[in-house]
Computed example of a mutant assay.
Amino acid sequence: MSQTTESKPQGGQRGRGTPTYGGGRPDAKGGDRPRRRREPEEEVWVPKTILGQKVASGEISSLEEIIELGLRIQEAGIIKKLLPDLKSEVVDVGIIQKMTSNGQSTRFKAIVAAGNENGYLGIGQGKSKQMRIAIEKATNAAYLNVNPIKMGCGSWECRCDQKHSVPFKVKGKGGSVTIEIIPAPRGLGLVAGGKIKRLLELAGLKDAWTTAKGSTPTMNSTSKAILDCLRQTFSQG
Rank of each mutant, 00 (worst) to 15 (best):
V90M: 10
G94N: 08
S155W: 04
G154Q: 03
M131T: 09
E43L: 12
I133S: 13
V93K: 06
S215A: 14
S155D: 03
A113N: 09
Q104A: 10
K197Q: 13
A225I: 12
K195R: 14
K48F: 03
I123M: 09
P217L: 14
M99R: 13
T100V: 12
A212S: 15
R16N: 00
I123N: 08
K150I: 00
V93Y: 05
K195P: 08
I181H: 10
Q232T: 01
L83V: 13
E136H: 13
S176E: 14
A110V: 09
G77T: 06
E117C: 11
R33W: 10
I135Q: 15
G214M: 12
D228S: 08
I79N: 04
R198E: 14
N102Y: 07
A203K: 07
G172V: 03
P183W: 05
G31Y: 12
I96G: 03
E64Y: 07
G119K: 15
Q232K: 15
Q74P: 04
R33A: 09
G124F: 12
L83I: 15
N116K: 13
P148S: 01
T210D: 05
V146D: 04
K150T: 08
M1L: 07
K137T: 10
K195Y: 14
G77W: 01
K87M: 12
E41W: 03
V170N: 07
I50N: 07
R14T: 08
Q104N: 09
S128H: 11
I111S: 00
A56L: 00
I196E: 02
Y21D: 05
T100S: 10
E59W: 03
G58N: 09
A203G: 14
K213Y: 06
I73K: 03
